[in-house]
Simulated scan of single mutants.
Amino acid sequence: MVHCRYLILLFCLAGIAGPVQATPLFDDDQPLKIELKGPLSTLIDNKEAREEKPFQLQVDGTQLALKVRTRGNSRMRVCTFPPLRFNFRKMENVGTVFEGQDKLKLVTQCRKGKRSQQDVLEEYAAYRIFTLLTDVSFRVRLVHVSYVDTDGSRDNPDGQYGFLIEPEKQLVQRLQGERSEVAAVTLKSLDPEQAALVYIFQYLVGNTDWSLVKAESDDSCCHNIVLVAIDSKRNLVPFDFDLAGIVNAKYAHPDPSLSIRSVQQRLYRGFCTDRDVLRGALDKVVSRQEDILGVIWGLPFLTDKDKAKRVKYLGRFFDEASDADAMIKSFEKTCHP
């Protein structure tokens, strides 16, 4: 009887601590090879419908049934091959790299050609750079996908790179936080050090496609930012970097309301922040310079010349950061009060 009571107590304590999610998918940085088989032509030709279709995914010799649909906002318009969303049968994932997964976002190669394949990898690099700086970030997993089209001619047996993004629910659980949905945020409501790190990171990768206000098409704040409340403070978790300067996609153009002509022009878009807090965030980024550039050098598919261009782009940030006072003063000219 005592033994039974002890076991019951253990189960209760486990329940209080919350469920432990098995998510081996994002614990490894090595590219994952998968094959996706199904009605790809029907899915893409009717992409606006966003209707789920039955597919088979093969990974490590195991075949998994899932449903797939198109997703995205701007990429739905500009991409001939839009991003996808996987919907797994969770009980069938046990014992595979997808164990614990339910719905997953896949960033695909938007258009045909080498340049578009580079774009995917460079956007993946932006996510990886931010995870180097903080755990308050979306984890990603690089995949090499071979497509088998069962009702058309979109087969791609040689495969192409894409990447999977950690689901928002898993992000919040991992951070032991809560999703915060509000119409707008104030400077006082944010974790100051974490927010400053986001401002500096966005400037580093040349991303202006984000804001701390609600977009017209959204129900809550913020544009390309997820708000996660941790210990009574809101944290900014950025996503979607296809319009960033580090990617420089052919379809990328800055918002006409901004005072820049190219997405490769950097523009500080954060709140006006205490100089010491900004300096601390800047120091943190600069201290990881070698690791940040290493993300680029470690990318597959890109030639050394392609990698050197991206390293040069990031290098201009670090050159500017060598005079921290001047950089922070320049931020104060465009910061949001």
Rank of each mutant, 00 (worst) to 15 (best):
L121E: 10
N46T: 13
Q101C: 09
E193R: 14
F241P: 02
T334E: 11
C79Q: 06
R269W: 01
F55G: 09
R269V: 06
Y203W: 10
E181M: 13
F271W: 06
D158H: 05
G159W: 03
R85C: 08
P157Q: 13
T303W: 04
E92L: 14
Y147W: 12
L171D: 02
Q170I: 10
K233V: 05
E168T: 15
P54W: 04
V94K: 15
P192R: 11
L267T: 03
F86V: 05
Q202M: 15
D306H: 06
R141A: 11
S189W: 01
R75K: 14
V247W: 00
V145I: 15
I34K: 07
Q173V: 10
G18N: 13
K103Q: 14
Q109P: 03
Q21F: 12
Y127I: 02
N248V: 01
P157E: 14
L197Y: 02
V286G: 00
T208E: 10
F55E: 06
L302I: 11
V107C: 06
L293Y: 04
A215H: 12
C79D: 03
L258E: 03
D155R: 10
V120N: 01
R275P: 01
D242L: 08
L302G: 03
C110H: 01
A17Y: 13
G95N: 12
Y203H: 11
V136K: 15
K114P: 00
P300L: 08
A252G: 04
F331L: 08
L104T: 06
K47C: 05
L9Q: 10
Q160D: 07
T273E: 00
Q170T: 13
L106S: 04
D276N: 13
D135C: 01
L104A: 09
L32A: 12
P157W: 03
R89H: 09
D119K: 01
T134L: 02
P19R: 13
S287G: 04
C12G: 11
L66C: 09
P300S: 12
R71I: 08
S137I: 05
L197K: 05
D102F: 06
V120T: 14
I165P: 00
K307L: 05
D135I: 08
G162S: 12
T150G: 02
E332N: 07
C79W: 02
K90M: 13
L299Y: 07
I296T: 04
I296Y: 07
A14H: 10
V311E: 09
I225V: 13
R139F: 03
A17T: 06
L142Q: 10
